[in-house]
Simulated scan of single mutants.
Amino acid sequence: MNDLDKAIHRSIDGEPAALVAPGAGLKELPEALVNLTSLRRIDLDGNDLEFLPASISNLSQLTSLTLYANQLEEVPEEIGRLALLQHLSLGRNQLASVPDSLWELTGLLSLNLAENKIANIPDAVKNLSALKMLDLGHNCLGRVPDAIGDIPNLTDYLYLSDNGIASVPPALGRLNLLGYLNLTDNLLTTLPPEMGGMAALRELRLYNNRIDRLPDELGDLSNLRELHLMNNRLATLPETLGNLSELRHLDVRNNPLRELPESIGRLERLTHLDLRASRLTELPESVGSLPRLEKLDLRWVKLDRTPAWIGSLRERGCVVLL
């Protein structure tokens, strides 16, 4: 343990409060560590840990345990005894599953299980009633559990990218406090109309899927600021797009878009519009009236004619790329 003494941070009264040793080359936890029962934080990201002992449960004061980028193949059932835990990061390990007891950690605020080999998340995930951030990206899920829609305080982030997910359950629309949703790099072809109920959503990332249509209810996302749709199969966008009054960034590059809705001109806060490599041959006149547009990207778009208003956009400082 002497080798780790410099990694121990102590509280004012001298008690060990945190162990911070990222990238220290550790292959196992020192046996004496579990006797430091006053520890509240452990940060061992980027080590080579292959095993987490059951005695980790002795550290009953832990509020934060981050073991990102290690070599863990399993997590002991005893982790569920860490009743005060608020932040748990097990991303980028070798986990195919996690113990059932993990879903009993009802005080968790953030949970990172990304970049593992997890194929199933049980309905018990809804027990994490305090959770604000959930990262399940880069796993092998195949489907989104309905129960995720029942996590009442999921407000900050939900990452589900790169999982081979083919559909989004309507239950996700119940996350009416969620601010950020990432479903990129999956196999989605459409979205359920219930997603229009995600009233607090500010950023929606859907690029690198197979989406060929969007529901009209997308226009109900009145707080949305960024919409990323790159590399899908969209030929049109819904007329309700114009209802997204807070939208700043719209990226629809590399889609077979043949037309834009005239309502796009109502996006008065839009600053960035990326239409690269679409199949558009003309643009709505209303695009030229977007008052806050700072960048319009039309590279690899074969317009029948260059709109006269392009010059006006440039004159007022908008970058237009043709």
Rank of each mutant, 00 (worst) to 15 (best):
S11L: 05
G14I: 08
G14P: 10
A17G: 11
A18L: 09
P22I: 01
L26R: 05
K27W: 02
P30A: 07
L33S: 05
V34R: 02
I42Y: 02
I42C: 12
D43M: 11
L44Y: 01
F51E: 14
P53F: 06
S55Q: 13
S55R: 14
T63I: 15
S64E: 15
T66Y: 11
A69R: 14
E73V: 00
E73I: 00
E74G: 01
V75A: 03
E77I: 11
L84G: 06
Q94Y: 07
S97D: 13
W103P: 03
L109M: 07
L111S: 11
K117I: 10
P122V: 00
L128Y: 03
H138V: 11
R143M: 11
V144M: 10
D146W: 01
G149P: 03
N153T: 08
D162R: 07
D162S: 15
G164E: 00
G164V: 07
S167V: 04
V168A: 06
P170V: 05
Y180P: 01
Y180M: 07
L181P: 03
N182Y: 11
N182W: 09
T184K: 08
N186A: 13
E194R: 00
G196H: 11
G197H: 14
A199V: 14
N208R: 12
N208F: 15
N209R: 14
R210P: 08
D216A: 14
L218Q: 09
G219Y: 03
L221T: 12
L224W: 09
R225C: 11
L227D: 04
M230H: 06
M230G: 00
N232K: 11
L237E: 03
P238L: 07
E239D: 15
N243L: 06
E246N: 05
L247N: 06
N255F: 02
R258E: 14
E259G: 09
I264T: 12
G265Y: 08
L270K: 10
T271N: 14
L275H: 05
R276V: 00
S278P: 03
R279Q: 13
R279S: 11
L280V: 01
T281L: 04
E285W: 12
V287N: 06
V287H: 08
L290M: 08
L296H: 01
L298K: 04
L298I: 01
R299D: 11
W300Y: 13
L303S: 00
D304W: 10
D304M: 15
R305Y: 08
